[in-house]
Nucleic acid binder design. Structure first.
Lengths: 221, 221
DNA sequence: ATGTCAACGTGGACGATGTCCACATAGGAA
DNA sequence: TTCCTATGTGGACATCGTCCACGTTGACAT
């Protein structure tokens, strides 16, 4: 709760203050809790002032979403830093993908409100390379993912033929699990169960990539 | 637009009318478009009348969500019916899982608003066996999925050891892709690209299940 | 047939929200 | 010093969810 009182007419950096308030709100309550009037209240400013810095509520929410995606990127880099020294370059590549997934899932678990603000927002997934979505390391979650997949190919772990579109498959699997863990049937489950499940999803992603389509191609129009 | 005018004081079946209006609203605009007042307007009734049938807006939305999940189940059964005659019992089991995934994705594509009303709603994933969520066939999407996985085990396609929790992995992958296809980077892509991607996700799910964890189990705390 | 009662709708109100318009003010550029 | 533009203010409006008190009605027991 930051109820700022201000003596000058000018605020100084209202845009940043609104953004910060928006993030607070999203933290506890998700995207729907990002209420324009409340944000201005916390910034110690009249509601309309927000319109000097954001076109409308949706614009504020989008800004919050971008920052939150930056946090996700941070969580990924953190997970990568925390992973043990790999013994081979193949293991390194695998560890990298694993860190990306783990960071994503950990963040979703730790800050469900921000996570939903990051990804459960109209057009949150568009502009995946937008610099606004980058973390401290300067890269967006999607960029970290694609880089990890590229490394997997370079290390010879993933056949090059499987590479195109692979980021969508990987993201799908991990994102879906995150949703289940946040407000699906996995919500009440203890941390270790879901984290084990997370590792299995990542395994699935890895194996799904490694194994070439085999036997009769599934018949469908 | 159903602007019903009514001559009697009693409405007859207001609850159903509100539900129908809610579904219309969700169809075009997703869960946020399910506005209590608008629903009552369409039912030709004063706003407060809704409170005789739903505790609050959230309750109405939940009812809409349940119906929408029933539609998803219908789409799955439809996809199953449309799939070609399998030559072996293994193929039959595979086709069944594929139909579940395909139905899910097709529905998401065809009715994004309803899809989000079905699954992007607080607590939409809880009570997965709730009869309210069943389709015409009497089964919920989750039940269809678990049945398909069980069949996969029975047919010997999936090792029994991989079965526990498999529904979460499968659901994760397919749901994540659906989100990407609805309002992610895949939104603008042509139908056939995403449907091919959908088949790949399902391949990934299948292969991820078939391949036993191999090599050194990933080291992590 | 009549009277009673609970289910159902109505009417009016309240506080909250997003957004618009016209106005005030400040602080740097000219 | 003057003036212009970016920045906040004040007040207003429509809409929304929800609450409370009040009519209305049909079914059912007498």
């Amino acid at each position: 709760m930051s109820v700022a009182t201000r003596t000058t007419f000018r605020h100084g950096d209202l845009r940043a203050a609104l953004l910060r308030a928006g993030i607070e709100l999203a933290s506890s309550g998700g995207p729907d809790a990002v209420v324009l009037r409340e944000a201005t209240r916390r910034a110690g400013v009249v509601p309309n002032a927000a319109y000097r810095h954001f076109a409308d509520r949706a614009a504020l929410l989008e800004a919050v979403s971008n920052v939150a995606q930056g946090y996700v990127a941070d969580a990924m880099e953190e997970a990568l830093a925390a992973s043990p020294e790999p013994s081979s370059s193949q293991d390194a590549a695998r560890a990298r993908l694993r860190a990306v997934g783990t960071g994503y899932l950990t963040f979703a678990r730790r800050s469900p409100g921000l996570f939903r603000a990051a990804f459960s927002v109209p057009a949150a997934l568009t502009g995946k390379d937008d610099a606004e979505k980058a973390g401290r390391g300067g890269r967006t979650p999607f960029q970290l993912l694609t880089a990890a997949l590229d490394a997997l190919v370079d290390a010879g772990v993933m056949p090059e033929a499987n590479r195109p579109g692979a980021e969508f498959l990987a993201w799908s699997a991990v994102h879906g699990l995150a949703m289940l863990a946040i407000d699906g049937p996995l919500r009440e489950m203890p941390e270790d169960v879901t984290s084990r499940l997370g590792q299995r999803v990542i395994d699935m992603v890895e194996h799904g990539f490694e194994v070439p389509p085999r036997g009769s191609p599934a018949p469908h129009p």
